[in-house]
Amino acid sequence: MRSTERLVVVGALALLVIIVAGQFCINLNVKTEYSVGYGPDGVSYDIDLGYVSNYSVVTFDDGGLGRNSEFVFCFDHEHVWYKSDDFIQNTLDHLARDMEERGLTLTVMDTKGVVNLMESDVDSGSSDTTVIFMTGSFPSEIYNGEEGCLLTEWLGIGGDLVWGSGPIGFNISTETECVPAENDPGTVLFGVEGAVNNGEGRTFDNVSYTEGLADMFRLYFSETTWGVQTGVSEDQLVTEYQTNGYSALSVTRYHGGSGSITVFGGDVDNNVASYVAQFLASGLGYSSEITDYQMGIGKQASGTLKVPASNTVVFLSIGLMNDNIVLYRNYGSVESVE
């Protein structure tokens, strides 16, 4: 055998050995340990990993809104949606998985089920379920473009709505067609005409916002095509990604009640579904106010953060994109914590 042939054999065998060895490296169970604790000096955290990772720990006052424990995704094949069924299903698949990775469970419910849920909530006067629409349009049974419909009633009693993949309120789905709504959804949902962006073409914000809200919570969603106007309500939380006054990600209090409307101002496809999951896991709401945060990169980290006077929430995130591990702790008011 010539020397070059020996090199070929050795090289090919080496790659084969790497491939076989790699099969055993998939379940290495790399150390991933993290914890937070509430003490007299504030919230302390400790991260100990077997790999180098980005991390972020944030304390904030959530205004007492808390985080819902039930998450419902409205989707059925009986309606003609603004987005295609395949697109919605793809988003749903990724969102469900990304939520599961963050310890949240997503339930898929058809329109009838969501109608029943909302009617039940309205009857009882309270809601503890987040309803997610990534269909780009509302079903006509829930929203007909006018105040007083089931959706606005539900928002009025405190319903929590999360929206993406289309201009909110602009399109209404029936079993046969998807038609434009007659009234301005900005007025109906936010009390301000033109509050929802619905321009031509897709728009994004390209600016870097280091250590802003988006960076702290790893919410790098930057499409503003169908964003909600920044400042449309005093009770509004927005990330830094904005274009012409419209936010890529906004949480706004419903103008006619205590409900919450979260809008992702662009397509929520498989690439960005994790940001929706990340947001849902964070417990952020329209009245959240950041108290303290620490961010960095490394294998080990620990520290202490200041806590707000009340409604203390701690959010710990390890990772960067779809690979985020999150820890959510709601300590409520300081007085109630021993």
């Binding site: 180098v52 990772s53 390209n206 870097s208 930057s222 499409e223």
Partner: peptide
């Protein structure tokens, strides 16, 4: 499998395996 093989090596060498987000690209 090759990426899996490289994972413990990168961890042992303290390589940042997550990188950084850049808005120009993140924007799409």
């Amino acid at each position: 499998y090759i990426l899996a093989f490289l994972t413990p090596i990168m961890n042992a060498l303290d390589v940042n395996v997550q990188g950084v987000i850049v808005p120009d690209i993140a924007s799409g």
